[in-house]
Design a protein around this nucleic acid. Structure first.
Lengths: 348, 348
DNA sequence: CTGAAAGCGCTTACAG
DNA sequence: CTGAAAGCGCTTACAG
């Protein structure tokens, strides 16, 4: 069905030289003169030659390809991270295979299998919410494929990690709420087995403890990352005799759900309920009231994750001890948590 | 640096059979008994064997991989389309390489080169805004790679196309505005060289003509797809002595810009300015007023695009004449264009 | 049902 | 600087 592909042998014949020579010319090997390089490349273009990366990879044993696995490509956080990764890969002449786990452990495992069989040189992963064990990541290492975890990571495996200082950001976000005068503050978090969510919870508790504010048992919620969960749980809490005065959500979507639940009850924001999220999703500055949040510098985070491979792992036989790299995040204060800003808005 | 990989020869030796047999067992060849298949597979798992897709692809001449090129993976429309494509590919045991052109013609060309050298069997593309010529798409065909265009397509190349009836949707959206009583209606569109934008403009003009409403020359704008462009142009138009009473934007982002510009001027929506966008982006139902829009059923669109390959192109020597497949879209009416809805909202 | 052998298109030591 | 040759790991006609 397919026509015969033009190979380096065809180029060699056409030019009256050997295939090895052609290969070297095409790959900019230093032994070849610039004149010959351009001659060969011109002929390649003329005959519509296309490099066959599968053959090269098979022979070379490396694919110059990086695989990335993220939970959702359409969440702005991950899309930005991918953009950063892509930028660095392109600059280093590597290509990129993007996989989506869709927050499913099963799909994540399949993605790992696929990337291994595609012989990628490195896998950058941000694990799914369902991921509790690292067996599949261990397998990556067994196949001598480099591994970098970013944002959401597992602790029980040796790998470089690029993430934010989640505990610190959560601490700061919580203190921001406290400084606004809120006292009964609830935390909408994620599963404890993923370090960033545990860290955000700890940061929240650190601040509350330091401020000597009570944290009722049911104000700390473990699975409130989605809009639906956020809305459901906020609805419950807002029915209490002593409902929360503010919510710090470890996810913008959880915060969005809380906002919708409070709107249904005509609860004024930020007057009666303060709210801050996490991730700086696109919608956070578009909704009303605009949602305070934590900007994780996701594009920079993606850049760094990719750079870990290019600067610390590529071509290195003995790897330095895996380290954790921290990307600075930034608290963004908008109307949803700031009485001061809100008043300005109203008066303008 | 890498340890030796386990190959089918290792499995063959371990099992006392031939490599050919192993290969067939692993690939579920009908000549092999179920018992032997599971025996071989068990051994493969035990020895941690992983299929090398590069070797297989090189030998087979096909990669069982589909490439997809979209302008932006983080626009909800494309993310949804990719989700649909992924679903169909997974069901057909094909893997997916996702490339992002970032609305740049140059990047799109590079993506095409990459996908060709990766030997993908098919490329699904939605072209960038800058794409005016189809030379690079022609090259795909020359390499005997199948081509399907979806959503944004070029007309001067023979390929299957999966898209919405953009002219009809635009016509309906415009009539919706007309029926709400708006008369001076502006159109925020995209470049004419991309068919869908031309179609949306035509649909708008069809409706205006039919309603015998005048369309001032400067009410039809060609490059107002982004939030920034939408805001800039809306600002200009709203300064006119006879400003538009409504805007139909061919992009939700353009509509968002218009909304922000009108808010700055304290123009009431939908009372003083009606607005409808296109694509049903995530933010459209979250902002206030909620933005009317056209839902393009993007996930279904992605599914169909992938299915064109699996049902009409895969393993077919003589291809049927390329056709255009239409995915039904749906007008979603929200507050931004509907006085009736708005009043209900206010009174509730 | 089973195996020996060829070959996909490249890269890279090795030799000159 | 240049080339002949081996081999990456698989699949698949071909033969039995």
């Amino acid at each position: 069905m397919k026509g015969k592909r033009v190979t380096i042998y065809d180029l060699a014949t056409a030019l009256g030289i050997s295939a090895s020579y052609v290969s070297r010319a095409l790959n900019d090997h230093p032994s070849i003169s610039d004149k010959m390089k351009s001659l060969v490349k011109a002929k390649a273009a003329e005959l519509n030659y296309k490099h066959n990366s599968h053959a090269a990879n098979l022979r070379r044993g490396s694919s110059r390809t990086i695989g990335v696995i993220v939970p959702k490509i359409n969440e702005n956080f991950f899309a930005q991270a991918i953009a950063g990764i892509e930028e660095v890969c392109a600059a280093n002449d590597h290509s990129l295979i993007i996989c989506q786990s869709d927050e499913s452990f099963k799909k994540e495992q399949i993605a790992v299998e696929t990337l291994i069989s595609k012989n990628v040189d490195c896998i950058l992963i941000s694990v799914s919410l369902e991921t509790k064990t690292s067996g599949h990541l261990q397998e990556i290492l067994q196949h001598h494929i480099r591994l970098v975890q970013f944002d959401r990571y597992l602790r029980d495996i040796e790998s470089f990690i690029v993430t934010n200082d989640n505990r610190r950001s959560a601490y700061d976000a919580t203190w921001h709420l406290i400084n606004q005068g809120y006292q009964r503050i609830a935390f909408f978090g994620g599963p404890d087995h993923i370090a960033i969510f545990k860290d955000r919870k700890e940061g929240f508790l650190d601040a509350m403890r330091e401020a000597r504010l009570p944290v009722p048992y049911d104000f700390v919620v473990e699975n409130a990352l989605s809009k639906e969960a956020g809305a459901r749980i906020a609805s419950q809490l807002l029915e209490l005799k002593e409902p929360p005065q503010a919510v710090f959500a470890a996810s913008d979507y959880g915060a969005l759900g809380a906002m919708q639940a409070s709107r249904l009850r005509n609860i004024k924001m930020p007057g009666e309920l303060g709210l801050i999220g996490f991730a700086n999703e696109e919608f956070t500055e578009l909704i009303q009231p605009a949602l305070s949040t934590v900007d994780q510098k996701s594009k920079e985070l993606g850049r760094c994750a990719a750079n870990v491979y290019f600067t610390k792992l590529l071509d290195k036989k003995i790897t330095e001890k895996p380290s954790v790299q921290i990307i600075d995040s930034e608290i963004i204060i908008r109307e949803s948590s700031s009485v001061a800003i809100q008043q300005n808005m109203t008066h303008s």
